[in-house]
């Protein structure tokens, strides 16, 4: 079977890969590129574990054909932290015990990032709806929601931001 050559910007770097026409972006990330941080929980867009940001828009990578990302920007969990420090969301999740098993965590972090990019100071309700596409079976969501609110507060407070770095 001939394979499709796709070039895109992945976490800031221009990269290319080969894939089958009907391979999903999720499968291309995991199986072609070895980026295993993006998880598959359902394959039907119902759990959010495979969430990535595509040209600034949160999507389930299991519902994107890999060839569609030609020329586009893809952000995954592997690109969330900077070289020497974590994203404030990652700090908040760690300090706020926002995960138990951790398999949904990459998806939650990407959904939360998309939410805070769009709405830097969300209410609790906005946070809950912002991550309603992400299932977590361990935490009951309490500590996830608190941690996202905490990250939003950190990011809008220059003092705390400095502290974090």
């Amino acid at each position: 079977m001939s394979r499709t050559h796709v070039t895109c910007v992945l976490n800031g770097d221009e990269i290319d890969f080969l894939c089958n026409d009907y391979q999903t972006l999720l499968s291309a990330l995991r199986d072609e590129l070895g980026m295993i941080g993006t998880k598959e929980g359902c394959g039907t867009g119902d759990c959010g574990a495979c969430s990535v940001i595509l040209d600034g828009q949160l999507v389930c990578s299991c519902l994107v054909f890999a060839p569609e990302v030609e020329g586009r920007r893809v952000e995954t969990i592997e690109g969330l932290a900077e070289v020497d420090h974590l994203h404030p969301l990652q700090d908040s999740f760690l300090e706020g015990a926002a995960f138990q098993c951790g398999v949904c965590t990459p998806g939650f972090l990407m959904a939360a990032k998309a939410l805070l990019d769009r709405n830097p100071s969300p209410t609790e309700t906005e946070v809950r709806y912002g991550v309603a596409g992400n299932l977590c079976r361990c935490t009951g969501y309490d500590k996830i929601v608190r941690s996202i609110l905490d990250a939003a507060a950190r990011m809008s407070d220059p003092e705390r931001q400095k502290e974090a770095t």
């Binding site: 969330l80 999740f93 760690l94 995960f99 951790g102 972090l109």
Partner: peptide, 8 residues
């Protein structure tokens, strides 16, 4: 094990 889990 937290760092590994928030970084994928």
């Amino acid at each position: 094990d937290g760092l590994d889990k928030v970084t994928g």
